[in-house]
């Protein structure tokens, strides 16, 4: 297993390596200030425009699928927290295919750090990180208005947000493994992004069978909707336990698949 085997000493080593990679990512991102500025502007504009659209729509209809405007906004913020967090941390998946087909992945395999760590977290999107900070502030600011002041619900909410990130981690590990076995990775990641984007709004909005698909087959609902619903006190304890179970099982399965995929890596390059 990746996580249980990591000791305190190892943890410090990985943190140091990760920090070095963050420094590299910052230098790379701001190598061109014009490009970085435009990308950052675009990311912020995309968030604000969809935010405005949701606000405009639900303030006219009063409710959407039974949710009030501040609740719908909160679902959107939770989606962004998990989506942007995953984009920021697991960016390495976007360049992994080129490493495999060029054979450069060999160099990661011989280094004294786990290749999965390098492949997954080897590139950090610092622009996404910059958008994550105001998102967090906005979420924390809006949180009391939807939680009804319940401390337990707030704690469970943050744990479920982490669980959402764990499911996102599992998916990215699965995509990396698939990249080794089939060399097909880019589209899988984009399909994942489109599917998870359906979590911008609560999955209750979708009609059957799409809703069941998003809850039971592809855990978009568990990743994006359940955390906010638990904060609002709209989920049962059983569903919360089930959500954590899905998180643990998905990460376990993805790591097993990753180990299997490594045995199939031929180092042949194209």
């Amino acid at each position: 297993m990746l996580l249980p085997e990591v000791k305190m000493k190892d943890f410090k080593k990985y943190l140091k390596v990760w920090w070095l990679m963050v420094g590299g990512a910052i230098a790379l991102a701001f190598n061109s200030r014009i490009g970085a500025g435009m990308f950052l502007t675009g990311k912020v504009a995309r968030f604000l425009l969809f935010f405005y659209f949701l606000y405009l729509l639900v303030s006219h209809t009063q409710t959407l699928a039974g949710y009030q405007v501040n609740q719908i906004i909160f679902f959107f913020l939770t989606f962004n927290l998990i989506d942007v967090g995953a984009q920021c941390l697991f960016r390495g998946v976007y360049v992994f295919r080129s490493l495999v087909i060029s054979g450069q992945f060999d160099f990661d395999l011989i280094k004294p750090i786990r290749p999965l760590f390098r492949a997954l977290a080897g590139r950090i999107d610092i622009l996404d990180f910059m958008t994550l900070v105001p998102l967090l502030v906005l979420t924390i600011w809006l949180l009391p208005s939807v939680s009804g002041g319940s401390l337990v619900n707030s704690v469970v909410y943050w744990l479920l947000v982490v669980n959402g990130l764990v499911i996102a981690l599992a998916f990215h590990v699965f995509a990396l493994a698939l990249g080794i076995v089939t060399l097909e990775i880019d589209h899988v990641v984009w399909i994942y992004r489109d599917l998870t984007s359906m979590g911008k709004i609560p999955v209750d909005v979708y009609k059957e069978p799409v809703r069941s698909l998003l809850t039971n087959i592809i855990p978009v609902g568990i990743m994006m909707t359940i955390p906010a619903k638990s904060l609002m006190g709209l989920t049962s304890a059983g569903i919360i336990v089930f959500s954590f179970g899905v998180g643990l099982v998905s990460v376990w399965l993805s790591l097993k698949y990753w180990r299997y995929a490594l045995t199939k890596y031929s180092s042949a390059s194209s």
Binding site: L57, T61, T63, L64, A65, S197, M198, I201, V205
Partner: peptide, 12 residues
């Protein structure tokens, strides 16, 4: 589908 269901639900 995202847009379709969003608008369909908005009408209620």
């Amino acid at each position: 589908l995202i847009l379709y269901f969003l608008w369909l639900t908005a009408y209620g």
